[in-house]
Computed example of a mutant assay.
Amino acid sequence: MSPKDPSRLPHEKGFHISWDQIHRDSRALAWRLDGQGPEDGAWRGIVAITRGGMAPAMIIARELDVRTVDTISVKSYDHQTQGDALVLKSPDKALMGDGTGILIIDDLVDSGKTLEVVRDLYPRAHFATVYAKPKGEPMVDTFITGVSQDTWIFFPWDMALQYVEPYRGTE
């Protein structure tokens, strides 16, 4: 569902995430992942799915004291239309192997197409997202908050603050 659906008011089925909220939810994800790595509970590295996974990955890397962080760039959206997933940039091959001990982090799993592509490349990695929609849940190992499939999530990096008229007018 696009937020530009003319049959809906702007606030319907929209989940607005603030910077504070993404920070809290990313920390909660880090706490859930703490001690779960295959190497005495530790993780070898973190790979952020760009671009949405970068902020959560940075927070999780800090919380878990993981210093090795890389990115994978997968394009699956053209503006707000989802298409076929395409890997534009891969992480360091020596780091990745089959993914054992690696956390793959994204902000959201929607249909699961992006994670499916990455999981095919690194089948033993642990996939974690902050938010998950039902269609994508089977592709993720750990997530914090589930949202309905028809909810559009507005992330803080996609928004700007602006003045809003009061509900009852300005008299």
Rank of each mutant, 00 (worst) to 15 (best):
G14D: 15
K75W: 09
L108F: 03
A94C: 14
S2H: 06
A61N: 04
G41N: 05
I22Y: 08
L121E: 14
K4G: 11
Q36W: 09
T100E: 10
G14N: 15
T50D: 11
P166S: 07
T151A: 06
S2M: 06
T151Q: 07
M159Y: 07
S26P: 11
D98E: 08
P10E: 06
E137N: 06
G101N: 02
Q162S: 15
H126W: 09
Q149V: 03
D150A: 02
P134A: 01
P166D: 08
P123T: 02
A61S: 09
S26M: 09
Q162Y: 15
A125E: 01
F15N: 10
M96P: 03
S7M: 14
D65R: 13
E137R: 14
A42K: 12
D5A: 04
R51C: 03
Q82A: 09
P91L: 02
L121K: 13
F143Y: 11
S73W: 08
G136Y: 01
R32S: 14
P10Q: 08
I153F: 07
Q21E: 15
W152R: 01
E12V: 11
Y122F: 09
D120F: 12
I46Q: 05
W19C: 11
T68K: 12
E63S: 12
G52I: 03
K89M: 13
I153C: 07
A48W: 00
V109E: 01
S76P: 10
P134Q: 00
G37K: 03
A57W: 04
D65W: 10
K93A: 15
D106F: 00
Y163F: 13
K75T: 13
M1N: 11
R124F: 09
D98F: 08
L86H: 15
D25T: 10
G53E: 05
D70Y: 05
D25S: 13
R67K: 15
R124E: 13
D65H: 12
D110Y: 01
G14R: 15
G45Y: 01
S111H: 00
L103S: 05
G136W: 00
D40K: 09
F15G: 09
P156C: 06
G45F: 04
Y131R: 05
P134S: 01
S18F: 08
M1P: 08
P138L: 04
R67V: 11
P123Y: 00
P10H: 07
S111V: 03
R51D: 02
D70G: 06
E165N: 12
T100F: 08
P38M: 04
W157S: 05
S26L: 10
E165Y: 12
A94H: 13
V140H: 04
A48N: 02
I102N: 02
L115F: 03
K13M: 12
Q149K: 01
Q21Y: 13
R51A: 06
R168L: 14
K135C: 09
E116K: 10
A132M: 02
S148K: 11
V74A: 04
A28P: 10
I60K: 07
R51P: 00
W152S: 04
K135Y: 05
R168I: 12
L115Y: 00
T129D: 02
S18T: 13
D107T: 07
I17L: 12
R51H: 00
E116A: 12
K113A: 11
D158L: 08
F127Q: 01
G146S: 14
M159R: 10
